[in-house]
Simulated scan of single mutants.
Amino acid sequence: MSLRILSADERLAEAQGKTTLAIFGPSGGGKTTLLTTMPEEKTVCLDFEAGLKSVQNWRGDSLPIRRFADAVDIACMIGGANPAAQPDEHFSEAHYAHLRAQHPELAARLDAKSIVFVDSITDLTRQAMAWAKTRPEALSERTGKPDTRGAYGLLAREVIGLLKHLQHAPGKTVIFVGILERLTDEMNRTIWQPQMEGGKAARELPGIVDQVMTLSLFSREEAPDGGVTWRHDPDKGQERRLVCRSGNPWGLPAKDRSGRLDMTEPPDLGALLSKINQPLKG
Results as ranks from 00 to 15, higher is better:
A50W: 04
A69Q: 14
A202G: 11
P267I: 06
R126C: 00
A85F: 08
L261C: 01
A75Q: 01
L21G: 04
G270V: 13
A130I: 11
P279M: 02
G270R: 14
H232T: 00
L166C: 05
L162N: 06
R260E: 03
P136W: 04
Q102A: 15
L46P: 09
P64T: 11
A169I: 01
D225W: 01
I23N: 08
Q86G: 05
R189C: 09
R203Q: 15
F68R: 12
L63I: 09
E10D: 04
R231H: 13
C76V: 06
A130R: 09
F68G: 10
S27K: 13
D268Q: 03
E186R: 13
M213D: 01
I179M: 11
L252T: 04
M196H: 13
K236V: 00
T36C: 09
R126L: 01
D225G: 00
W192M: 05
D225C: 02
G150F: 10
G60N: 01
F24T: 15
L154S: 00
D70M: 07
N248I: 04
S114R: 05
G227A: 03
P83W: 02
A271T: 03
R241Q: 15
V72R: 14
A156I: 02
A69N: 11
L183S: 07
Q193E: 15
L273F: 05
P136M: 04
L261V: 03
K18A: 15
T143Y: 08
R260I: 00
F48L: 13
R59S: 06
A223F: 03
M187I: 10
S2N: 12
E40W: 12
T33K: 15
L21M: 15
L162V: 03
V177C: 11
K18H: 15
A75F: 04
E93A: 15
H168N: 05
N248F: 05
W230S: 12
E105F: 09
P136F: 08
D147N: 13
I208P: 15
W250T: 06
P136S: 08
